[in-house]
Nucleic acid binder design. Structure first.
Lengths: 152, 152
DNA sequence: ACGTTATAGTTACATATGAAACCATTTGCA
DNA sequence: TGCAAATGGTTTCATATGTAACTATAACGT
């Protein structure tokens, strides 16, 4: 909790500064997971996110993938070109709109997914195991509130 | 809360996956702050973190700055060379160990700090204002637990 | 003292990322 | 219809970042 006794311009104590703490925690967690599938499948985090979204929503366009993952379209485009090349994602052209692509996991892509999804879940479980039930439910509630549309 | 009814290999629902949520939240928060001081002072996040640490601990070496900020030494080295060049940080050589540098904020550096620190605090307050007291204290407690040394 | 090893910090290179320009196609509307 | 504006997606370029190699100095063990 920010200490009211420090004047506003006093040096920040990074280790108690919420944005900093979130950043450290988030990076540590994401990196641990990413290292895992990176090492085993040479799959980047953006690529995995694209695959995860296509596993749930088959036939999306690239723009829709970008929306769902909150990544920008350039990142998605790059991830897709690699994924299509390695054969884990299929890309067709939308009939009726030649600009749009129609994306989905290939058989091989599903096979990767079958391995990586449980891996990711395992990391999450591991993280949550540090909390008790009460803490877990507060965490979800707090995240929901904090994420209620960032008002700049 | 992860839903027990989904088998482990089912498609991840990113929007309920804790590591993903943390990453989105953390990026949004940090980016909002960074945009702010970036625009006004052409100061990157790593540079600001170096300055924040030097505001609290005068005379650190580069390695110590890296430890305190959890950034790697190359990032710190680069940040420092820019900060020294713009004149916001002073760098001397440790007497008795010519490898070590002795770092600190300059007058100009302090002036920047006086503006940026309150800005950062304001963003944090803004974020925390979405929570009530009870939620805030749970959040701190939860972060403490989650951050208790990542056991890989 | 002296060579080996460790440490502080920088440089070089390879890769990742983001913004803007770009191409193709489609939409909106005069 | 036909042409300006919008949209989907890729390419280009400039910048950021991480890893490994490197330089200089210091510490250690004999």
């Amino acid at each position: 909790m920010p200490d009211e006794h420090h004047p506003d311009h006093a040096p920040l104590e990074l280790e108690h500064f919420l944005p900093y703490r979130l950043s450290i925690l988030s990076n540590a967690v994401s990196q641990a997971i990413a290292d895992d599938y990176q090492r085993r499948f040479d799959l980047s985090m953006t690529e995995w996110r694209v695959m995860a979204v296509l596993a749930r929503f088959d036939g999306l366009s690239a723009r829709e993938v970008a929306e769902r993952t909150l990544m920008d379209k350039v990142a998605v485009s790059r991830a897709l070109s690699k994924l299509v090349e390695t054969g884990w994602v299929t890309r067709a052209i939308h009939d009726g709109d030649k600009r749009r692509s129609v994306l989905g996991l290939s058989e091989a892509g599903w096979a990767i997914h079958e391995v990586v999804a449980p891996m990711a879940r395992e990391h999450e479980r591991n993280l949550l195991s540090k909390l008790d039930d009460e803490e877990r439910s507060w965490l979800v509630r707090i995240l929901d509130k904090l994420q209620a549309i960032e008002p700049k």
